[in-house]
């Protein structure tokens, strides 16, 4: 909580305006791909984040990652590294950057960018195979990103 108030004051944004989420095009990544400022100002809900990570229709992160904390979710993929200990390896700002747009942290990563809305090759309308028009809705909304970050932060060895 403290952190975003400070950030909001420092960046000159009135605290009240923090109720409006940072839009996908306004996210500011530092040179290493971290995002300091919360996207919503509302602390993430780790339990909800866990649900998003495991749900095929939401983040579907387990399509590519294994997470021991979600061992009840079947069919965890092996494309990316195991997420156990992610909360030790990365701080909150780094995790936010990775989830919002992993390509800012890992150049050319296969991991999709979850808070990005344009700049795609043949963007589709969801999984219909039909054309979609940019800006597309981001894969996760701002609060979902915060929830996922809160969950990842709990993954300590």
């Amino acid at each position: 909580m403290m952190k975003w108030i400070v950030a909001a004051v420092v960046s000159g944004v009135p605290v009240l305006a923090a109720a409006e989420p940072v839009t996908p095009t306004d996210v500011s990544f530092d040179d290493y791909g971290s995002v300091e400022e919360s996207l919503t100002g509302t602390p993430g809900d780790a339990a909800n984040g866990a649900a998003i990570v495991g749900n095929k229709k939401a983040g579907n992160c387990v399509a590519c990652h294994q997470v021991s904390a979600l061992s009840d979710v079947p069919f965890q993929g092996e494309i990316g590294p195991m997420l156990d200990g992610a909360g030790d390896r990365w701080n909150e700002a780094e995790l936010r950057g990775i989830v919002a747009n992993s390509k800012m942290t890992f150049e050319g990563s296969m991991m999709p960018s979850y808070y990005k809305t344009s700049g795609y090759v043949r963007p589709g309308d969801g999984f219909t195979g039909k054309a979609g028009s940019e800006p597309l809705p981001p894969l996760l909304d701002a609060q979902q990103i915060e929830d996922v970050v809160a969950f990842l932060a709990t993954l300590k060895e």
Partner: peptide, 12 residues
């Protein structure tokens, strides 16, 4: 091919 491209949330 169509199925695989559709699964990337693309226009096939």
């Amino acid at each position: 091919f169509k199925g695989c491209i559709r699964d990337t949330r693309a226009e096939t």
